[in-house]
């Protein structure tokens, strides 16, 4: 499963499965990098559909990560702000999918269903029915799905059940390492200490997709004085 094109720098490819990404918090940027890498590996028309929760789509990191700003136009996003909105998004996901859709991104899929506005049963039910809706879309289209969850407790086991592939990303002294059922990938081996900052992922993506040339994205000038 590891990519062969760039032997020194490897990220897992997302085939037509439902992938559950379990990333350590220290490896922030892993989700975003996988999404961008996937888009860059597809044709220029390929898009991703992203249903957000819990502010994962904070655009600052994504904008800084994307080796090309045009890439941001290829991610279509809608955010849920309540359990009900999030569920509606899942319910209407099938209407959003087109020929061009090449990835469905669902970070922290369980987040809203622990909300105090719902009683316990209701939350459980909304989560499991919500996942079933995603599975329906996936069964019909075989578009790869990338999900994450907020914790590994029993209440998120429906997510684990639906996942056909669990991708783990952990921080090692050699940099971040992805492991799956049948592969293990050190992103960028052999160069001592790595910190998974935005710059780090930015370099990885630019190195893997040299056709984009040097990274064109400058970090945004920080607003002076925001406290």
């Amino acid at each position: 499963m590891p990519r062969q094109s760039a032997p020194t720098i490897e990220l897992p490819t997302l085939d037509g499965n439902i992938h559950l990404l379990e990333a350590e918090r220290r490896t922030s940027g892993a989700l975003q990098s996988l999404v961008l890498d996937h888009l860059l590996s597809q044709g220029t028309d390929a898009t991703a559909t992203w249903i957000d929760s819990r502010g994962n789509a904070s655009t600052q990191p994504l904008a800084q990560l994307a080796p090309s700003p045009r890439l941001l136009d290829r991610i279509e996003i809608a955010r849920g702000f309540t359990a009900f909105q999030h569920y509606s998004l899942l319910d209407e996901l099938h209407e959003q999918v087109t020929e061009e859709t090449s990835l469905l991104v669902l970070p922290d899929l369980d987040w809203f269903y622990r909300d105090g506005d719902l009683n316990h049963r209701e939350g459980e039910r909304m989560l499991s029915e919500g996942i079933a809706l995603v599975e329906d879309v996936h069964d019909k289209t075989r578009i790869p799905v990338l999900v994450t969850r907020t914790n590994r407790g029993e209440d998120t086991s429906p997510i684990e059940c639906a996942a056909e592939e669990v991708l783990r990303c952990e921080q090692t002294s050699q940099g971040p390492r992805f492991t799956g059922s049948d592969f293990e990938t050190l992103v960028y081996p052999g160069r001592g200490y790595f910190q998974t900052t935005i710059t780090y992922w930015n370099r990885i993506l630019t190195a893997r997709h040299p056709e984009l040339g040097e990274s064109t994205v400058q970090p945004e000038v920080a607003t002076v004085g925001t406290d």
């Binding site: 941001l72 136009d73 991610i75 809608a78 999030h86 509606s88």
Partner: peptide, 11 residues
């Protein structure tokens, strides 16, 4: 309950 979600937009 607020069921109506925002419309899709590009990143």
């Amino acid at each position: 309950n607020s069921w109506r979600h925002e419309q899709y937009k590009t990143m």
